[in-house]
Amino acid sequence: MDVETNSSSLQSLQDRYILTQIGQQQLAFPSQWVAEILLIERSQVLILPFYDSAILGVVHHRGQIVPLVAIQQIFEGMAGATREIISVVQLSQKADSLAGIGIVVDRALENRSHEQFTNAFSEHDHVAVSPQTEQTILLFRPEMLSDRLWEPQCSQLV
């Protein structure tokens, strides 16, 4: 295989998005930020009682402790339907401070290239529109998860 031609195709491979469905909202993760998509049984989740309700708990995966964030709680202020097997998008090393945490999504939809969006994501524009469904797609950003999530909630102790 020709390396030169491959490099462009490889570049296209890298510049992709993992499209997920969370409630009514679609969320796109840049594929570089995604380490793996996990399917976890709910019984394996260890619940952390003194944290924000968005923290679903932690799970042990491949020698790592993976905290699970129910992003639907942040978006819509409510937990979605509970499933026995939950899909989790584990963030990779590229996500800096958020590396290793798992974002709980309803469903992992598809792998989509940059071109497949009608208007690509820019630095300031984090919203794209799906060509098939005309639905707005949000781009995942670390700012979505506030730092308060990682602090134990004293109020819940009271």
Binding site: S9, L10, Q11, L13, Q14, R16, I18, S31, Q32, V34, A35, E36, I37, L39, I85, S87, R107, A108, E110, N111
Partner: peptide
């Protein structure tokens, strides 16, 4: 349907692997 979702996840993971491999 479960099997289908599993397959899909698998496919996504494969695409991720493929992306990583391309790097």
């Amino acid at each position: 349907s479960q099997i289908a979702s599993l397959t899909q996840t698998l496919a996504l993971n494969a695409s991720l692997v493929a992306a990583r491999a391309s790097e």
